[in-house]
Amino acid sequence: MKTRYTHGGDEHIYVEIDDEMSLDAFFKSLSMSKAVRDAEIDGVTEICPANASFQVRFDPEVIDPEEMMSRVKKLEAQADQTDKRLNTRIIEIPVFYQDPWTHETLMRFRERHQDPSGTDLDYAARINGYDTAEDFITAHHAQPWFVSMVGFVAGLPFLYQLVEREKQLQVPKYLSPRTDTPKLTVGHGGCFSCIYSVRGAGGYQMFGITPMPIYDPEQKISYLEDFMVFFRPGDIVKWKPVDRAEYDEISAAVEAGTYQPRMAEVEFDLEKFNADMTGTNAKLMEALNDA
């Protein structure tokens, strides 16, 4: 990993921790963006951590861009010494794979796809070496995922699977982005999964849909009363496959205000994870099952 610093116009500093994705790069970008926040530098207005990079927005009338750059650079050494440990939560997200709504949408935009003859899941299964879409779905939900970025649009999480690099599921984005994606679609592009928080344009392959809203500007949904956005970087997600009946049941519970996502407080230690991925994941999922 080598850190690259650059200006984004006269109001932003952009720091790329690494040009490739890894949890090491994510942890460093998170701890460095925290160090910038803790430094309480006058003029800083926004700090946005991303997968393997972060961005600082500032008012150049309060702090000169070059001065801002040198202040951020000085925080790198401090961030390097931070423990790569997070107190976070693991959340179970129900997914109705191969649902009728994303199916209708993917058929409507077939001419924008690499393989117009099948579905997004058929294509993803084939290029990742799985015999069937079902086998691919199993690989998608068997191990937990890590929220490495929140953004694009309102509250959308990017998720990175907690498995070895050679087991990462990878698919290209649509050849040309769709103008429509159903709300709460579970999508995948590059090595990242995402949940489309709102309906709209999108380029990720579509695998299924969750009945659990993750963004509520009216803050009426029981678990979004405190804040309208559900996810934060560092959250851990375990997909749980559900069928149509369960999907309808959860949707009704959300509507009635009785649905509570299943979740547990956990500690995630990157060094322990790197030393024993299967064991670490087993413990994470055990905490969730006990919840």
Partner: peptide, 21 residues
């Protein structure tokens, strides 16, 4: 192309966009 970026040469590992970028 770096791991996670996608195959097109205009792709990067998803990062932040700034206003005006």
């Amino acid at each position: 192309q770096p791991f996670g970026a996608g195959a097109d040469p205009s792709n990067i590992v998803d990062g932040c966009y700034c206003y005006g970028s």
